[in-house]
């Protein structure tokens, strides 16, 4: 079972269509109150020079966010890239449910498929990049 910042990371980067399909087929339907209605705004993404050095501003990114409270009082926050108000609300619900006894159900029906899908797409990108690697057999590689 993932930690909270890990599951929020998986949800925040989820592809919209896939998340929607997983949500609709999961039959999750908790009762909740909205404490922050879904809103769209911008954040500044920061990186570090060379990956480990001084921070710098990489650029702005659109983010949608929402916060909900389940009837048991648990609060969930949803953040997602892009313009996706409904998805932000549903992610907030997932975040809340993952703090309750329903955690395993959300993990199985939503988190695990998302993680698998990301691994598959990362692997595809890596494979495509590897296919462009050229092996020089007349030169000794520097590695």
């Amino acid at each position: 079972m993932l930690g909270r910042s890990e599951w929020l990371s998986v949800l925040a980067k989820a592809p919209q269509q896939l998340f929607e399909d997983l949500w609709c087929s999961s039959d999750l339907d908790p009762s909740y109150d909205i404490i922050r209605p879904a809103e769209i705004g911008g954040i500044m993404v920061r990186g570090r020079m060379g990956g480990t050095g001084d921070p710098f501003n990489l650029g702005e990114m659109t983010v949608s966010r929402a916060s909900v409270k389940l009837s048991c009082g648990t609060v969930g926050h949803g953040y997602v890239k892009g313009r996706a108000k409904t998805m932000a609300l549903r992610i907030a619900l997932c975040d809340a449910l993952l703090q309750t006894a329903d955690a395993n159900k959300v993990d199985a029906k939503i988190l695990q498929p998302l993680i698998e899908a990301k691994l598959t797409s990362d692997q595809e990108i890596a494979d495509k990049a590897a296919a462009t690697k050229v092996d020089f057999f007349t030169l000794v590689r520097g590695e």
Binding site: I34, P37, E39, K69, T74
Partner: peptide, 13 residues
């Protein structure tokens, strides 16, 4: 403790 965060603007702008 569980803090109540509800009660903000519903239509902020």
């Amino acid at each position: 403790q569980i803090v109540s965060l509800s009660g903000g603007f519903t239509d902020h702008s």
